[in-house]
Write a protein that binds this DNA or RNA. Structure first.
Length: 110
DNA sequence: CCGGTGACCGCAA
DNA sequence: ATTGCGGCCACCG
């Protein structure tokens, strides 16, 4: 009774998504982390992290995930700003996040 | 099988 | 400061 493609692979993918979303939820308000940092924790490349958030990021505080240099992906720019103002996230005059001040490392949880 | 693409990253001109 | 390029890894046609 085979129902289709390897469910183990399907399962692994699902677990991966879960771990990424979990990490995002750990990020404290007013702080941010980067795709690369998350990738380091879940053990994968940053592009995959971005891909996961693009597809399944809706339920989590996705605005707390930015690029390594603090700049925001095009999709974030629009909706994230209000959240930053609300949370008091340290911003630079350029509109990017002030990383030294706001970066939260999921590995050390600080 | 191969090439293109993506909410990326880091280094070199 | 900008731009370009390679590396990364999974997905899609």
């Amino acid at each position: 009774m085979v129902t289709g493609p390897d469910l183990s692979a399907e399962d692994a993918r699902e677990r991966y998504v879960e771990s990424v979303l979990t990490v995002v939820e750990q990020v404290p308000p007013g702080r941010v982390t980067s795709y690369g940092a998350i990738a380091g924790v879940v053990g994968s490349g940053p592009r995959r992290v971005g891909n996961v958030l693009a597809r399944h990021g809706a339920p989590v505080p996705w605005w707390r995930v930015v690029r390594a240099d603090g700049s925001l992906p095009p999709s974030h720019e629009e909706n994230a700003r209000p959240h930053y103002l609300d949370e008091g996230t340290p911003l630079r005059s350029t509109g990017a996040v002030d990383m030294p001040a706001a970066f939260w490392d999921p590995e050390t949880r600080e």
